[in-house]
Design a protein around this nucleic acid. Structure first.
Length: 240
DNA sequence: GCGACAG
DNA sequence: ATCTTGTCGC
Protein backbone atom coordinates (compact mmCIF):
# COMPACT_ATOMS: atom_id res chain seq x y z
CA UNK A 1 0.00 0.00 0.00
CA UNK A 2 1.26 3.51 -0.79
CA UNK A 3 2.24 5.97 1.88
CA UNK A 4 0.51 9.34 2.06
CA UNK A 5 2.92 12.09 0.92
CA UNK A 6 3.58 14.71 3.57
CA UNK A 7 3.43 17.42 0.97
CA UNK A 8 2.57 17.75 -2.73
CA UNK A 9 3.14 20.67 -5.11
CA UNK A 10 1.06 19.48 -8.05
CA UNK A 11 -2.39 20.12 -6.68
CA UNK A 12 -5.46 22.14 -7.52
CA UNK A 13 -5.89 25.59 -5.91
CA UNK A 14 -8.47 24.41 -3.38
CA UNK A 15 -6.15 21.64 -2.21
CA UNK A 16 -3.27 24.11 -2.01
CA UNK A 17 -5.34 26.26 0.32
CA UNK A 18 -6.04 23.29 2.60
CA UNK A 19 -2.33 22.46 2.72
CA UNK A 20 -1.60 26.07 3.66
CA UNK A 21 -4.16 26.04 6.45
CA UNK A 22 -2.59 22.87 7.85
CA UNK A 23 1.02 24.09 7.61
CA UNK A 24 0.12 27.49 9.05
CA UNK A 25 -0.46 25.82 12.42
CA UNK A 26 3.21 24.79 12.46
CA UNK A 27 4.56 28.31 11.99
CA UNK A 28 6.54 29.50 15.00
CA UNK A 29 6.94 33.24 15.61
CA UNK A 30 9.39 33.98 18.41
CA UNK A 31 12.63 35.97 18.83
CA UNK A 32 15.67 34.49 17.15
CA UNK A 33 18.31 33.30 19.57
CA UNK A 34 21.18 31.89 17.54
CA UNK A 35 24.03 34.00 16.18
CA UNK A 36 23.82 34.80 12.49
CA UNK A 37 26.92 34.44 10.37
CA UNK A 38 25.42 33.61 6.98
CA UNK A 39 22.25 35.06 5.46
CA UNK A 40 20.60 33.47 2.44
CA UNK A 41 18.39 34.92 -0.29
CA UNK A 42 15.84 32.99 -2.37
CA UNK A 43 14.28 34.16 -5.63
CA UNK A 44 13.32 32.82 -9.04
CA UNK A 45 12.67 33.83 -12.63
CA UNK A 46 10.44 32.32 -15.32
CA UNK A 47 10.39 31.49 -19.00
CA UNK A 48 6.72 31.09 -19.81
CA UNK A 49 7.54 29.99 -23.34
CA UNK A 50 9.61 27.05 -22.12
CA UNK A 51 7.39 26.51 -19.09
CA UNK A 52 10.43 26.62 -16.84
CA UNK A 53 11.21 28.20 -13.48
CA UNK A 54 14.77 29.08 -12.53
CA UNK A 55 15.50 29.18 -8.82
CA UNK A 56 18.41 30.96 -7.20
CA UNK A 57 19.85 30.67 -3.71
CA UNK A 58 22.59 33.06 -2.60
CA UNK A 59 24.46 33.17 0.69
CA UNK A 60 26.21 36.31 1.96
CA UNK A 61 28.42 36.92 4.96
CA UNK A 62 26.34 38.82 7.51
CA UNK A 63 29.24 41.13 8.32
CA UNK A 64 30.18 42.50 4.90
CA UNK A 65 27.17 41.32 2.86
CA UNK A 66 29.48 39.81 0.29
CA UNK A 67 28.48 36.57 -1.45
CA UNK A 68 30.14 33.37 -0.24
CA UNK A 69 28.05 30.77 -2.11
CA UNK A 70 25.21 30.38 -4.57
CA UNK A 71 23.29 27.72 -6.48
CA UNK A 72 20.68 27.64 -9.26
CA UNK A 73 18.00 25.25 -10.44
CA UNK A 74 15.66 24.72 -13.38
CA UNK A 75 12.29 23.00 -13.08
CA UNK A 76 9.00 22.67 -14.91
CA UNK A 77 6.21 25.04 -13.87
CA UNK A 78 3.31 23.09 -12.35
CA UNK A 79 1.16 25.85 -10.94
CA UNK A 80 -0.19 29.21 -12.22
CA UNK A 81 0.30 32.51 -10.45
CA UNK A 82 -2.59 32.95 -8.05
CA UNK A 83 -2.40 35.69 -5.41
CA UNK A 84 -2.19 33.89 -2.07
CA UNK A 85 -0.82 30.66 -3.57
CA UNK A 86 2.58 31.93 -4.74
CA UNK A 87 4.58 29.23 -2.94
CA UNK A 88 3.02 26.47 -5.06
CA UNK A 89 4.45 28.16 -8.13
CA UNK A 90 7.84 29.35 -6.89
CA UNK A 91 8.90 27.35 -3.83
CA UNK A 92 9.85 24.13 -5.69
CA UNK A 93 12.49 25.95 -7.77
CA UNK A 94 13.78 27.85 -4.73
CA UNK A 95 14.05 24.70 -2.61
CA UNK A 96 15.84 22.84 -5.39
CA UNK A 97 18.40 25.65 -5.62
CA UNK A 98 18.76 25.72 -1.83
CA UNK A 99 19.74 22.04 -1.86
CA UNK A 100 22.70 22.93 -4.07
CA UNK A 101 24.28 25.22 -1.46
CA UNK A 102 27.46 24.10 0.25
CA UNK A 103 27.17 26.82 2.90
CA UNK A 104 23.88 26.50 4.76
CA UNK A 105 22.61 29.96 5.85
CA UNK A 106 21.53 30.64 9.46
CA UNK A 107 18.73 32.91 8.25
CA UNK A 108 16.91 33.07 4.91
CA UNK A 109 15.32 36.07 3.20
CA UNK A 110 12.60 35.10 0.74
CA UNK A 111 11.11 37.21 -2.06
CA UNK A 112 7.47 37.40 -0.94
CA UNK A 113 5.35 37.51 2.21
CA UNK A 114 5.90 35.72 5.51
CA UNK A 115 2.81 35.64 7.75
CA UNK A 116 1.37 38.76 6.13
CA UNK A 117 -0.89 36.41 4.21
CA UNK A 118 -4.62 35.53 4.17
CA UNK A 119 -3.90 32.18 5.87
CA UNK A 120 -0.67 33.31 7.58
CA UNK A 121 1.43 31.16 5.27
CA UNK A 122 3.20 33.27 2.68
CA UNK A 123 6.04 31.67 0.71
CA UNK A 124 8.63 32.61 3.35
CA UNK A 125 6.66 30.85 6.09
CA UNK A 126 6.01 27.85 3.85
CA UNK A 127 9.71 27.45 3.03
CA UNK A 128 10.68 28.05 6.65
CA UNK A 129 8.46 25.15 7.75
CA UNK A 130 9.81 22.78 5.10
CA UNK A 131 13.46 23.67 5.82
CA UNK A 132 12.92 24.05 9.57
CA UNK A 133 14.98 27.22 9.50
CA UNK A 134 14.49 30.94 10.31
CA UNK A 135 12.97 32.79 7.33
CA UNK A 136 11.87 36.36 6.65
CA UNK A 137 9.46 37.48 3.98
CA UNK A 138 10.60 40.60 2.07
CA UNK A 139 7.99 41.70 -0.45
CA UNK A 140 8.03 44.61 -2.88
CA UNK A 141 4.27 44.86 -2.68
CA UNK A 142 1.42 44.31 -0.22
CA UNK A 143 -0.89 41.29 -0.35
CA UNK A 144 -3.11 42.02 2.66
CA UNK A 145 -3.06 44.47 5.54
CA UNK A 146 -2.92 48.21 6.00
CA UNK A 147 0.50 49.89 6.26
CA UNK A 148 1.06 53.01 8.34
CA UNK A 149 2.80 56.14 7.10
CA UNK A 150 6.53 55.98 7.74
CA UNK A 151 9.50 58.33 7.53
CA UNK A 152 11.58 58.79 4.39
CA UNK A 153 14.96 57.83 5.85
CA UNK A 154 16.66 54.48 5.60
CA UNK A 155 15.64 52.35 8.56
CA UNK A 156 12.31 54.08 9.16
CA UNK A 157 9.48 51.60 9.57
CA UNK A 158 5.91 51.16 10.76
CA UNK A 159 3.39 48.35 11.35
CA UNK A 160 1.14 46.64 8.83
CA UNK A 161 -2.19 45.84 10.47
CA UNK A 162 -4.76 43.26 9.41
CA UNK A 163 -7.89 45.39 9.81
CA UNK A 164 -10.08 42.30 10.05
CA UNK A 165 -8.35 41.05 13.20
CA UNK A 166 -6.46 44.12 14.42
CA UNK A 167 -3.31 41.98 14.44
CA UNK A 168 0.09 43.42 13.48
CA UNK A 169 1.24 41.06 10.73
CA UNK A 170 4.29 42.86 9.35
CA UNK A 171 6.02 46.17 8.77
CA UNK A 172 6.69 48.63 6.02
CA UNK A 173 10.45 49.26 5.97
CA UNK A 174 12.38 52.01 4.21
CA UNK A 175 15.51 50.18 3.03
CA UNK A 176 16.77 53.29 1.24
CA UNK A 177 15.98 56.98 1.61
CA UNK A 178 13.18 58.34 -0.59
CA UNK A 179 12.20 55.06 -2.24
CA UNK A 180 9.10 52.89 -1.90
CA UNK A 181 9.16 50.81 1.28
CA UNK A 182 9.62 47.07 1.42
CA UNK A 183 6.94 45.02 3.20
CA UNK A 184 8.43 42.56 5.63
CA UNK A 185 6.98 39.91 7.91
CA UNK A 186 8.41 37.01 9.87
CA UNK A 187 8.30 33.72 8.02
CA UNK A 188 9.25 31.14 10.63
CA UNK A 189 11.43 30.82 13.76
CA UNK A 190 11.86 34.60 14.18
CA UNK A 191 9.65 37.57 15.10
CA UNK A 192 8.72 40.87 13.49
CA UNK A 193 11.55 42.70 15.28
CA UNK A 194 14.03 40.25 13.76
CA UNK A 195 12.45 40.64 10.34
CA UNK A 196 12.75 44.43 10.49
CA UNK A 197 16.26 44.34 11.98
CA UNK A 198 17.74 41.89 9.47
CA UNK A 199 16.08 43.45 6.46
CA UNK A 200 17.67 46.78 7.33
CA UNK A 201 20.95 45.15 8.24
CA UNK A 202 21.08 43.38 4.85
CA UNK A 203 20.18 46.52 2.93
CA UNK A 204 23.21 47.91 1.15
CA UNK A 205 23.02 50.68 -1.44
CA UNK A 206 19.80 49.46 -3.02
CA UNK A 207 16.12 49.07 -2.11
CA UNK A 208 16.34 45.29 -2.30
CA UNK A 209 18.38 43.67 0.50
CA UNK A 210 21.68 42.28 -0.79
CA UNK A 211 20.89 38.54 -0.50
CA UNK A 212 17.69 38.99 -2.53
CA UNK A 213 19.17 41.45 -4.98
CA UNK A 214 21.93 38.99 -5.80
CA UNK A 215 19.50 36.05 -5.97
CA UNK A 216 17.38 38.05 -8.42
CA UNK A 217 20.41 38.69 -10.62
CA UNK A 218 21.49 35.06 -10.51
CA UNK A 219 17.99 33.79 -11.33
CA UNK A 220 17.81 36.14 -14.30
CA UNK A 221 21.19 35.06 -15.62
CA UNK A 222 20.27 31.39 -15.17
CA UNK A 223 17.23 31.91 -17.37
CA UNK A 224 19.16 33.78 -20.06
CA UNK A 225 21.95 31.22 -20.20
CA UNK A 226 19.47 28.34 -20.35
CA UNK A 227 17.51 30.04 -23.14
CA UNK A 228 20.80 30.57 -24.92
CA UNK A 229 21.46 26.84 -24.83
CA UNK A 230 17.96 26.23 -26.18
CA UNK A 231 18.56 28.55 -29.11
CA UNK A 232 21.81 26.82 -30.01
CA UNK A 233 20.05 23.48 -30.03
CA UNK A 234 17.17 24.67 -32.16
CA UNK A 235 19.01 26.78 -34.73
CA UNK A 236 21.07 23.93 -36.27
CA UNK A 237 17.87 22.06 -37.14
CA UNK A 238 16.64 25.19 -38.94
CA UNK A 239 19.83 25.67 -40.94
CA UNK A 240 19.88 23.17 -43.80
C1' DG B 1 -21.78 43.20 -7.08
C1' DC B 2 -17.11 45.87 -6.96
C1' DG B 3 -12.36 46.35 -6.26
C1' DA B 4 -7.80 44.31 -4.71
C1' DC B 5 -4.57 41.04 -5.58
C1' DA B 6 3.17 38.74 -3.14
C1' DG B 7 5.65 37.15 -8.12
C1' DA C 1 7.25 37.33 -13.37
C1' DT C 2 8.08 39.33 -18.44
C1' DC C 3 8.99 42.69 -23.08
C1' DT C 4 13.79 46.65 -22.62
C1' DT C 5 18.49 51.67 -23.58
C1' DG C 6 19.20 55.57 -22.31
C1' DT C 7 18.03 59.06 -19.48
C1' DC C 8 16.27 62.63 -15.93
C1' DG C 9 16.79 63.61 -11.06
C1' DC C 10 17.80 63.30 -5.82
Amino acid sequence: MGIRPIHRWQVRPCTAMRIQARLARLVCIRPMTCQIQFVGGLDCSFDQGLGLAFGAAVVVDANDLRPVDYAISASRIHFPYVPGLLSFREAPAMLKAFKGLKTVPDLILVDGQGIAHPRRLGIASHIGILLDRPTIGCAKGLLIGSPSLIGQQKGDHGPIVDLDTGQVIGAGVRTRAHVRPLYVSPGHLCDLQDAIHWTIRCAGLYRIPEPLRLAHQVAGKAKRSYSGIGVRQVLPSLQI
